[in-house]
Structures are given as structure tokens and as C-alpha cells.
Amino acid sequence: MGPLLQTATSEALGGACAGVVADSVLYAVDSAKVRAQTTPAASGGWKILFRGLVPTITLGSVPIFGSFFFCFALVKTKLLEQKQDALLPFAAAACAVPATLVGVPADVLKKRLVLGIDPNVAKAFSHILSEQGWRGLFAGWHVNLVKDIPFAGVKIGFYEAFVSQWRAWNGLSSKEALGAQGAAICGIASGVACGVLTCPLDVVNTRIKASATPSRSILQVGRHMLKTEGVFAFFRGVAMRSFVLAVGSSIFWPIQHGVSCHLNGNT
């Protein structure tokens, strides 16, 4: 295995491991955010917040973060070699496309489960396939792309900028390990900013996947929300979303860096 492929594989495994841990820890909080984004708010006991945890994490977090970091590592290495750091946000946005698409089915399943539309994964699959066919598993895929592409670009852009500043403040070279504290602080800052900026599209995404509206058009759903609920509807669950991303990032980045560095022998 060549050095570049080894680096990409290590980054992918680090991303997958970090995604599983972070998403598992914050699964219930994210579920509560999803439920807060519906109108009226979905009913159900606290146990529903954990519904579908294992299958959706397995089908979502692992392939999403694994594929993203594999692709991003390849592109990032080349850009840094050519001293094109400014293009990293655009590279992240491009790498978010395959990562987003592979994770849409898990996103659809989770929203249906935690909103109480279906009692378990088997029923969810059955209902989706009988009512909408295989296309139902990719409901709202366009919303995911519109949301995740800028999200990835902005988040990675902020993160890399904070990392650069952290290295400068602490006298670290670009080849030295960032450290768990630095990774956590930089992740929190970038996560909160992205949580607020992408909340409107996240709300629209939830409405579409929950079949809370007959339309699958981002613009039509957005216009309907604005007309019937006002602008604040686009920021339903923003506090929980920001909390999830902030805490999740403080968990995610140290693990991702730690695993990838260990596999690369840069401990």
C-alpha cells in the first residue's frame, strides 16, 4: 500500500471510529432536536429517543465519515503539497457529495423511527418500500446535499483555520500532532458556527423526511413554512443542533486525530 493510500485509509478509519462514538453519545439529543423540528412536536416517551440507534449508526456514521475522510485525505494531501490551503473548504464540499448520498437511507430511517412513524427498522423498510419504493429511502436527498455541501465546506474551512491558528499559538509545525485539547477546541468552534448557519436547511430536511408535507421541493416547503409559521420556524431546534455539533466535535476530532495518527505511526 502506497503512502498516500495508507494515509487515506487511516484517516477513513479514524473518521469512522470517531463518528460511531460521537453519534452514539449524542444520539438521543439529536433525536430530540429532530422531534422539536416537527409541528406539532411529536409525542412519545424518552425511550423513543434511542430508537434505531445501532442500525442507523451502522448504516450511517460508518460509511458517511469513512468515505468522507478517505476522499478528503487524498485531495488534502495534494493541495497541501501544492500550497493551495485556501482550496480545502471547496475540497471538503466536493467530498461531502458521495458521503452524503451514502448516508441518506440511514437519515430517512432515523427520522421515521424517532418521530414514531414506524416502531422499528424492519417496519420502516417495509412501509417505505410499499408506499414509495426504493426511492423512498432517498427522500430528501437533494436537501441533504444542499445542506451538507456548504456545511462540510464551512465546517472544514473554519476547522482548518482554527487548527492553523492553534498551531501558530503553540509553536507546532504542520507535521506535529495537534493534540486532543487543540482538536477539541477547534472542533467546538467550527461546529457551533455551522450548526447555526445550516439549521434552516436541517429543519426543511426533517419536514420532508417525516412526510410532514406532501411536497419534496426545498423552495415550496420553505415558502409554506415562512407563510404559516414565520421565519423562526427555520431555527427550530437550533440550540440543540448547536449543542450536538459542539459536544460532538469535542468528541469527534480528538478521536479522529488520535486513531489516524496512531495508524500512521505519528503518535
Score class of each variant (00 low, 15 high):
residue 55 P to G: 01
residue 101 L to T: 15
residue 243 F to S: 12
residue 242 S to L: 05
residue 76 K to H: 09
residue 70 F to M: 01
residue 169 W to E: 15
residue 40 P to A: 04
residue 33 K to D: 05
residue 142 H to A: 09
residue 249 S to E: 05
residue 235 F to G: 01
residue 141 W to F: 15
residue 131 E to F: 01
residue 214 P to E: 10
residue 20 V to W: 06
residue 56 T to Y: 00
residue 113 L to Q: 14
residue 169 W to F: 08
residue 134 W to L: 15
residue 25 V to M: 05
residue 256 Q to A: 12
residue 154 V to E: 03
residue 127 H to Y: 08
residue 108 V to S: 14
residue 243 F to I: 03
residue 26 L to N: 06
residue 252 F to T: 02
residue 228 T to P: 05
residue 252 F to W: 04
residue 188 I to Y: 00
residue 155 K to R: 10
residue 72 F to H: 14
residue 37 Q to T: 15
residue 39 T to H: 11
residue 205 N to P: 03
residue 1 M to F: 05
residue 207 R to A: 04
residue 132 Q to F: 14
residue 178 L to F: 07
residue 203 V to E: 05
residue 212 A to M: 10
residue 20 V to I: 09
residue 33 K to A: 15
residue 38 T to D: 03
residue 94 A to Q: 04
residue 231 V to W: 02
residue 204 V to Q: 04
residue 29 V to F: 03
residue 115 L to E: 12
residue 113 L to C: 10
residue 59 L to Q: 11
residue 173 S to N: 02
residue 263 L to P: 10
residue 129 L to F: 15
residue 76 K to A: 05
residue 55 P to D: 04
residue 9 T to S: 12
residue 218 I to V: 14
residue 214 P to N: 10
residue 201 L to P: 15
residue 241 R to H: 08
residue 50 F to A: 10
residue 77 T to M: 04
residue 206 T to I: 11
residue 18 A to Y: 02
residue 166 W to T: 08
residue 140 G to C: 12
residue 79 L to G: 06
residue 175 K to W: 01
residue 257 H to T: 11
residue 209 K to W: 00
residue 97 V to P: 04
residue 99 A to Y: 03
residue 75 V to D: 09
residue 71 C to A: 12
residue 148 D to E: 14
residue 248 G to K: 06
residue 142 H to Y: 02
residue 87 L to P: 00
residue 177 A to S: 14
residue 43 S to G: 02
residue 258 G to Q: 02
residue 262 H to I: 06
residue 123 K to N: 11
residue 36 A to T: 11
residue 208 I to Y: 05
residue 47 K to N: 11
residue 134 W to E: 09
residue 7 T to G: 13
residue 143 V to H: 07
residue 155 K to L: 07
residue 104 V to G: 12
residue 92 A to D: 00
residue 28 A to Y: 02
residue 10 S to N: 06
residue 111 K to T: 15
